[in-house]
Simulated assay, not measured.
Amino acid sequence: MATYAIGDIQGCFSALQCLLERCHFDPARDRLWFVGDLVNRGPQSLETLRFVRDLGDAAVTVLGNHDLYLLMVAAQAVPKRGRDDTLDPVLQAPDRDELLDWLRQQPLCHREGAYCVVHAGLLPAWSADQARALAREVETELAGAGWQHFLQTLWGDEPAAWQDRLAGTARHRVIVNAMTRMRFCSPEGEMEFRSKGELSDAPSGYLPWFDVPGRRSLDGETVLVTGHWSALGLYLRPDLLALDSGCLWGGALTALRLDDRQVFQVECGEGGCIAR
């Protein structure tokens, strides 16, 4: 039995199939951990959703910002942003409701053994166990009957920092924004959402979230498994496995076998995929 953590797919289903062949993935024996952003901008979001859902217990996926965006569009909480969206096949599918119901019941954060899987990152004030508890607050709302109303309140950049006394919409928004959108934050934990570039592009006064001094999830035991930051690329160190290697942008789709940290990649592009 092997467990593979896989970077952002964003509807690049053909690349995912190539990657799983490269890994010799067997759903009867192995497990897949997806770091979120299953959908959008790539050409096969519908096929990706159906495939991951049908894997059942062989797969775990956490929610990414594009997955939440799909749910928000479906709930009419936000309008579709523009021509780079590729969500219509999902929204028009005969099994649309079943797929959306499955998606909204997926976790925002997955904790197992030494690993904590989250799409973007954790604020410096949060331990991995605290993050899991906070994620559960959002997951309860998304899985409930009032999920559409909940999503009406979720969009926005403020507040940009965590405080324990936060409640309601403000509390949920910080949790979601940190776990699905964050790249840079200040030493005090204030998030900055405009910058999407490389580490050297950090705005003045901000750091990559994982380099903030005193980060509580840097405890010598926890390994964070993330995606979201394609400009960062594949970025591996003892406490962090960042797996978004930019498949959507012509880079690679990455799987990392957790058992021995072996990396598997396929190159992505219009011509198909090439095993590395």
Score class of each variant (00 low, 15 high):
Gln262Arg: 15
Arg132Gln: 13
Leu100Met: 03
Asp67Met: 02
Gln265Phe: 07
Met191Leu: 10
Glu221Met: 12
Arg96Asp: 05
Ala5Gly: 05
Leu207Lys: 08
Gly36Phe: 06
Gln163Gly: 11
Arg83Phe: 11
Met191Tyr: 08
Val212Thr: 04
Leu207Gln: 12
Gly220Lys: 08
Ala114Lys: 12
Val90Cys: 14
Val62Phe: 01
Phe193Trp: 09
Ser14Phe: 01
Arg216Cys: 10
Arg83Tyr: 10
Trp209Arg: 11
Glu98Ala: 14
Gly113His: 13
Pro89Asp: 09
Val212Ser: 02
Ala128His: 12
Pro159Lys: 11
Val223Ser: 04
Leu232His: 09
Glu139Asn: 10
Pro79Val: 06
Gln130Ser: 13
Gly42Asp: 02
Leu166Lys: 04
Asp157Ser: 04
Asp67Asn: 01
Cys268Thr: 07
Arg136Gln: 15
Gly272Asp: 07
His119Val: 04
Val212Tyr: 00
Gly205Cys: 03
Gln265Arg: 15
Gly220His: 07
Val62Tyr: 00
Arg215Lys: 12
Leu243Cys: 13
Leu16Gln: 01
Asp157Pro: 03
Thr3Ile: 15
Leu134Arg: 05
Arg181Asp: 06
Arg29Ala: 10
Trp162Ser: 03
Val225Pro: 07
Glu137Ser: 11
Arg183Gly: 04
Asp97Thr: 14
Cys12Gln: 11
Tyr115Cys: 15
Leu87Val: 08
Glu47Ser: 03
Leu71Asn: 02
Val62Met: 03
Ala114His: 11
Asp54Thr: 03
Asp88Glu: 15
Arg41Asp: 08
Glu221Ser: 14
Gly146Leu: 08
Gly272Val: 07
Val266Met: 05
Glu112Met: 06
Gln10Asp: 02
Leu240Cys: 15
Leu20Pro: 08
Pro203Met: 06
Ala75Met: 03
Val223Trp: 04
Gly42Thr: 04
Cys185Val: 01
Arg50Pro: 00
Leu70Gln: 01
Gly250Gln: 11
His24Asp: 10
His24Glu: 11
Tyr235Gln: 10
Glu158Thr: 09
Leu218Thr: 04
Gly64Ala: 09
Leu224Val: 14
Asp37Pro: 05
Leu68Gln: 09
Glu47Ala: 09
Arg83Gln: 13
Phe34Asp: 00
Glu98His: 06
Val90Asn: 13
Asp157Gly: 01
Val73Met: 02
Cys116Ala: 14
Leu100Ile: 05
Gly7Phe: 00
Asn40Lys: 08
Cys116Val: 15
Leu241Trp: 09
Asp239His: 09
Gln152Gly: 13
Pro27Phe: 06
Ala242Asn: 04
Leu20Asp: 10
Pro187Val: 11
Gln265Lys: 13
Leu240Gln: 14
Asp97Arg: 11
Asp129Asn: 10
Arg81Ser: 14
Gly7Met: 02
Pro94Tyr: 07
Gly214Cys: 02
Leu224Met: 15
Gly113Met: 12
Gly146Ala: 12
